[in-house]
């Protein structure tokens, strides 16, 4: 799955560590999600969406 996490994070001037702290996950997890090596669970995807105040589908896309 593709996602716009890196862009959204950059817009807010957050480092991977900043985002990790806000989501209460490890920086390694943020990195894995950003680079598309790991698709988060629905609960984590919703937490991410809530943090950025966007709908889940505005952040994650299943189109290649």
């Amino acid at each position: 799955m593709k996602n716009s996490l890196k862009v959204l994070r950059a817009e807010r001037n957050w480092s991977q560590s900043d985002l990790a702290d806000k989501l209460q996950v490890s920086r390694q997890s943020v990195n894995a999600i950003e680079t598309g090596r790991y698709d988060p669970s629905l609960p984590l995807a919703f937490r991410i969406a809530r943090l950025f105040e966007l709908p889940v589908e505005a952040i994650f896309s299943d189109e290649a």
Binding site: Q24, V25, S26, Q28, S29, A32, P40, L44
Partner: peptide, 8 residues
């Protein structure tokens, strides 16, 4: 382990 990726 609360971090789902670390758990994986």
């Amino acid at each position: 382990t609360t971090d789902e990726y670390q758990r994986l």
